[in-house]
Amino acid sequence: MPQGSDVADVAPMPRHQHLIVTVYGLYARNQGGTFAVADLIRLLGELGMESAGVRSAVSRLKKRGVLVSVKRGGAAAYKLSPELEDVFTAGDERIFSPRRAKKDDGWLLASFSVPEARRHLRHKLRTILTRVGCGQVSPGLWIAPGALANEVELQVRRAGLMSYVDLFRATHLTESQINEKVGQWWDLPSLEALYTDFLVRHEPVLQRWLQRAGEDDDSPALLRQAFADYIPMVTAWRRLPYMDPGLPEDYLPERWHGLAAQQLFTQLHELLGPCAHEYAMSIVGASQPVAS
């Protein structure tokens, strides 16, 4: 466990847009994908965001096609883009139920060739493969644990780039070299640094809540604090399972902090998630329009 006793309890607040996406991903689907603007401002106010900042971030998300404006009960509201529903659903499994591959699971190979006239698509394709957790064997050949096959195909198809890509199931035949090769295909030191940062910043949050264990307290103040701790934690975490391909433990460096970080996230999710959900629903659920 990295040393971090001199680091502040509270991590720097993630960008407003990232927090909003987290809140929508966690709670909006219980509300038909929609939040009234007033409710969203109140929720994000618990995270230190001012009304103007919320509106500005929502406007940027609307321009990006993440949110669409609607009316709910006659009030202004924003809804998740229907085109992103499958992305959020797939994200639930990747973020909250990650799977670490076994040595005998095999590999996925993604081979692509893009004509020179459309070379701008190469960067787009490489970005997609990187974000889903693939490693680069060579410029036109990428690799991932076999368990990521469906997700890789989904993301490439969503981008309309499947005509440039061939996907293969594969077995690596030179097992004695695999640990060295994995270190070439993925930037594990950079990923390790991100996991270390997550541990340093959020381990004190867990310790603070564990000290409250046994307290008979389900007050609004406790629920509000759980929400305020949970949302930034999930926001900081949710990109990491995408950057981490879920390599078998046998292929990871010794004392890999990703394993401890996953355990910490799971503990905080189980400890704070229900209280944060109850608080969020007390805000957004209370303002649902009554059916006629």
Rank of each mutant, 00 (worst) to 15 (best):
G273P: 03
Y242W: 13
H120I: 15
M13C: 08
R72C: 11
R238E: 12
Q184H: 09
A110K: 02
K79R: 14
Q177G: 13
E175M: 06
R158W: 12
V58F: 06
K103Q: 15
R42G: 08
P253D: 00
V114K: 04
Y242K: 09
V200S: 01
A261Y: 05
S176W: 10
Y164W: 02
R60M: 11
Y78M: 11
P204C: 03
Q262S: 09
M281P: 10
I283T: 05
L84A: 08
P139K: 02
S69N: 09
P14G: 01
T34F: 08
V132A: 06
A11R: 00
T130Q: 10
G214E: 08
H257M: 10
A291G: 11
W185A: 04
E50H: 13
W107P: 06
F168K: 04
A76R: 15
D6L: 10
M243F: 13
S69K: 11
A75L: 14
P232C: 05
G45V: 01
A8M: 05
F112A: 06
Q155M: 11
D104H: 10
D92G: 14
A117H: 11
H172N: 13
N30F: 15
G91E: 01
A75F: 13
E192D: 06
H120N: 14
L264E: 08
G48H: 01
E270A: 14
W209Q: 02
A193H: 02
E215D: 15
V58S: 09
E83I: 09
L194I: 08
Y230A: 02
A52F: 10
L247E: 02
G133L: 00
L47K: 06
T174P: 12
G258V: 03
S138H: 11
R239F: 12
L26I: 12
T22N: 02
L199P: 01
A236Y: 02
A291R: 14
K103C: 14
R122N: 04
L47T: 03
A261Q: 05
V156S: 03
T34Q: 01
I20E: 00
G183S: 07
T130I: 12
G74Y: 00
L206C: 03
E93Q: 13
P82E: 10
G146V: 06
G214P: 08
E151Q: 13
H172Y: 15
G258K: 06
L268H: 07
K103N: 15
